[in-house]
């Protein structure tokens, strides 16, 4: 049955890598659906505290309750519901960061790579400056100055994580800009904006998609780290990093409170990375045609 399916569709990719990509896509897909539908799929209100129901273990442990599949936290809030809302925060941060840093980084990278000369010097200088900025310290300062909120975290990460976009956009643009079709477009009267957006961008976008997945995973991890340090999403919003931070006092007696968000974070970031690697291989093979 399986053999006949494979023969019919003619898959030639190594099966392990292919499965890994599918697994990554599945994880990311589930995370997206859960994030979008969070209010409809949560079994309980994630903010509702019940001090009589504190630290109930998850279903596979003794003393669990059927209405709390993953147990409750130190304030009696349903852990599954909080985890689901946490998916929302993580995905939101990931997407916002990628969009914002992508816009900044790709714009800078294309300008530097295409025009070269002084423009490129400026872009390289900005990239170097950015790499010299300690992310956590900047976040600390920003939080100290304006307080912490979801918006502040997204903005901070979005304004700081553009360096890899810029580097990749710059080098790939340099490869593309000397090709004949760019000269042909100029000879056909195309404007500069047209050449950058319609001739260059579509030919480097494959590489940028891979960067986007890596940056998204990084942003999610950084948000968790910032929230763990108390510099990220403020309570009672259920960020996974914040859940880990709040759970660390109880980890010796109720280890699941720290393990569950930790595993969720691990699985999502791994899923995004697997998808990114898979996309790189698939699209890379596509480019070689």
């Amino acid at each position: 049955m399986f053999v006949s399916t494979a023969a019919r569709t003619g898959w030639r990719l190594p099966p392990v890598r292919h499965l890994a990509t599918l697994l990554g896509a599945l994880i990311v897909g589930v995370a997206v659906v859960v994030a979008l539908l969070a209010p409809y799929v949560v079994p309980h209100d994630p903010f509702l505290q019940d001090l009589n129901q504190r630290l109930i273990p998850p279903m596979w442990m003794d003393g669990s309750q059927p209405e709390h599949l993953l147990g409750t936290d130190q304030l009696g809030r349903d852990y599954l519901s909080r985890l689901i809302y946490g998916t929302r925060i993580s995905m939101l941060i990931g997407v916002m960061t990628v969009v914002m840093s992508g816009l900044i980084g790709i714009t800078l990278g294309i300008l530097g790579g295409f025009y070269g000369g002084r423009m490129d010097d400026l872009v390289m200088f900005l990239i170097t400056c950015r790499l010299a900025i300690p992310l956590i310290l900047v976040a600390l300062t920003v939080v100290a100055l304006v307080g912490s909120s979801l918006t502040v975290v997204s903005l901070t990460l979005g304004l700081l994580l553009w360096d890899r976009f810029a580097v990749v956009a710059r080098t790939t643009t340099m490869q593309v800009r000397t090709l004949d079709y760019i000269a042909a477009a100029k000879a056909a009267g195309a404007s500069r904006l047209h050449i950058l957006l319609r001739e260059v961008l579509p030919n480097i976008v494959v590489h940028l998609i891979v960067v986007a997945t890596l940056e998204m995973a990084l942003a999610i991890l950084l948000e968790a780290a910032l929230s763990f340090l108390g510099l990220g999403v403020p309570p009672p919003l259920p960020s996974w990093g914040l859940m880990i931070a709040e759970a660390k006092d109880y980890m010796f007696f109720s280890p699941w409170v720290i393990m569950i968000p930790g595993i969720a974070l691990f699985v999502l970031v791994m899923g995004i990375n697997l998808l990114g690697d898979g996309l790189r291989d698939l699209l890379g093979a596509d480019l070689k045609r």
């Binding site: 004949d180 079709y181 000269a183 000879a187």
Partner: peptide
């Protein structure tokens, strides 16, 4: 360019996007 004066290049393999 491309209107009253048009140009064709050497490398047809790379002159198309």
């Amino acid at each position: 360019r491309g209107d009253k004066i048009a140009m064709i290049f050497q490398e047809p393999m790379t002159s198309l996007n």
